[in-house]
Design a protein around this nucleic acid. Structure first.
Lengths: 163, 163
DNA sequence: CTTGTTTAGTTCGATATCGTACTATATGCT
DNA sequence: AGCATATAGTACGATATCGAACTAAACAAG
């Protein structure tokens, strides 16, 4: 009961390039899983990755955004964002006000409690991330980031094409 | 790179470094989200990423595994794996038999329907993945994979340390 | 053999996810 | 204006997620 099994890299010889992509996506899926559970173990309460992500987004890019804009930023269905925002509002971390420009819409604003909670969350998580750095290496992080962005953009476009 | 949206609450260099890691993990989270929804749109029925992942795992690494082994392979809690396997059994895609070596345990075997469904799922998804390749580039995929593996292993170890 | 501890798996409950369907408002067209 | 269509957001329902508590079996020590 230690590490996970070796990643599934069989079939190397078949000339199957798609296997390489599957492996990349598989690793990404597991990393997302692990980083999510690490994050949520540091958040406490019933807060999820999405709760934190939404708060962090509002702090970093500014509040006064609409739920739909946020749903698109996170690539989640708008119903999921609606639910996440309802949870944040119930906890008093955001306020949802009618959009004066658009009678259908709402605008999301951080409360002081929301900002404070976000700051504390970042402070709680940063040590874990810092611990990672010397092992992972900044060079690899810097090398990976543009590649990951490119992949994210491609998947994003592929999704747009499907919808 | 180009995408810098807003200056971040930088506390000096270690803030920038951890921000880089945060960004890497953030991109990974979004990619996982997108690839999951792409996958599930191709699976149909109520099948999830985890259903497919479990079937694929059994095909590729061999069946006759225990639920707990599988939970560890996927880095999910054993209760989640239990639920996933129950769903597969209900659909007739796997069989769960008592482990003759261990009266507490079970062993998971693929049914013919399970193998067939997995094969069809792979066939359905491969074109999407193939489409990705020329845009993403095999070189970047090959460059990213070892870095992602390293990160996955580090997070895995960090989790072990927490538990 | 008996007892305490560990381990495999399930049950249960609170919450999350997300597709479908719905309401209300906005916008475009004639 | 009047009407069709598009868009923002919510309600709801089926299912997923996962921690805590539970059962049963294995194992360890005396």
């Amino acid at each position: 009961m230690k590490k996970s099994d070796a990643p599934e890299t069989a079939n190397g010889n078949e000339g199957n390039d798609s296997q390489l992509m599957f492996d990349v996506l598989n690793e990404i899926g597991i990393i997302a899983q692990l980083s999510r559970s690490l994050l949520e173990s540091r958040l406490g309460d019933g807060l999820t990755q999405h709760h934190f992500g939404a708060l962090n987004h509002l702090v970093r890019l500014g509040d006064g955004r609409t739920p739909l804009q946020m749903a698109r930023s996170f690539q989640v269905p708008k119903t999921s964002m609606s639910h996440t925002l309802a949870g944040l509002e119930k906890r008093g971390l955001i306020e949802m006000v009618a959009n004066p420009q658009d009678g259908r819409g709402k605008l999301i604003y951080l409360t002081d409690a929301g900002r404070t909670l976000r700051d504390h969350a970042v402070a709680n998580i940063t040590p874990d991330v810092m611990t990672l750095i010397p092992q992972f290496g900044l060079d690899d992080a810097r090398a990976a980031l543009p590649i990951l962005r490119k992949l994210r953009v491609l998947l994003d476009e592929a999704r747009d094409r499907r919808n």
